[in-house]
Simulated scan of single mutants.
Amino acid sequence: MERELLSVVVTTFNNADTLDACLRGVGWAEEIVVLDSGSTDATLAIAAHHGARIHAQPFAGYSAQKQAAIDLASHRWVLLLDSDESIGEEAAALLQRTLVAPAHAGYQLWRREWQFWRWQSARTRLNHYVRLFDRQRARMSGHEVHESVLVEGSVGVLDAIIDHYGEPDIAGRTAKANRYSSMQLADLAQRRVTWLRLRMVAYPTVAFLRYYLLRGHYRSGWAGFIAARVHAFYAFLKYAKLYEARQRQLHRGEPDQ
């Protein structure tokens, strides 16, 4: 019995360090679509080596860029990957079996995180995201950051793991927290976020405890502790920057000399 044809969709920008592993794991797919936003390293050469169909456009934001890449796919079923993610042979085999007779409009896959110098402990809680879906019944959420795939129809969960390399060091993780918290201002500004001072004081601690204890990252040793602290820093930054933006609106004059 034949399976559904699959388009693998990846957005890129200077991802030469991780793209080869990403595309190597999906060489069995009928199509690989890469939408690049101006890479100056070996990203495009790596994509061409793997037979990808390469397109380019200026970066339009994470959600819009991914939606544009999805729209370029030739086949109905899409596997959406970040350029710093990869899947192994077991996950690939499960995806292929699922595509023989898909029972849902989309499927969530688990994601394992690289934390600075080690993988997160096998006993920590993994995040899961919709990554395999019928693109005629799905679209990106439109959020500036933490974008997700919204599916019209039922969503299943596959026992398949995506390996996410992310930021390889603390400097990269904190830089991402700073960048994402700035980008999230547009989303937060559309919501009626109240009690900002209290959120700045209390929410970072809540975020740390939830990540470190409830999600089990204490099992990853000091790497898990540092990751939880950076996560709490991000929780603080997004509300502090929203508070700053509101204060600037209230005090539109020149700064005090």
Rank of each mutant, 00 (worst) to 15 (best):
V193Y: 00
M183W: 13
D17W: 05
S83Q: 06
A47Q: 03
I32R: 13
V230C: 02
A45W: 04
A64D: 15
R139M: 01
E144F: 02
E144K: 07
H231I: 01
F13N: 08
Q184V: 14
L242T: 00
E144R: 12
H251T: 07
G224K: 02
F208I: 01
Q115A: 04
F236V: 01
V100F: 05
G153I: 09
T174L: 15
L213W: 15
L132C: 10
S121A: 14
L132R: 04
G27L: 09
P168F: 04
A105K: 12
R53C: 05
Q65A: 10
F13R: 15
L242M: 02
T43V: 09
V193G: 03
E2P: 15
K66L: 02
A186T: 14
Y218W: 15
C22K: 07
F225M: 11
A60C: 11
G166H: 10
D159W: 02
R248Q: 13
R131F: 07
T124Q: 06
Y129C: 06
A21V: 07
V34G: 01
V100W: 05
R3T: 11
L237E: 15
Y165M: 08
S220A: 05
H49L: 13
I161K: 11
H251P: 01
Q57F: 00
L242D: 06
T18M: 05
A245F: 00
Y165K: 08
R215L: 04
Y234V: 03
G253Q: 13
G38K: 06
A171M: 06
L79T: 08
E244S: 09
R197G: 02
G38A: 01
T11P: 06
E4H: 14
P168Q: 03
V26H: 01
L99H: 05
D41T: 09
L209H: 01
K176H: 08
V145N: 08
G142E: 12
S83T: 03
A160Q: 04
D17G: 01
D159E: 15
Q120D: 11
M200V: 02
N127D: 15
L19Y: 09
Y211W: 12
H49V: 07
Q115F: 10
H49C: 04
R179I: 03
V78I: 13
L196G: 02
L95H: 00
S86K: 11
Q57H: 11
A69E: 07
E254R: 11
H50M: 08
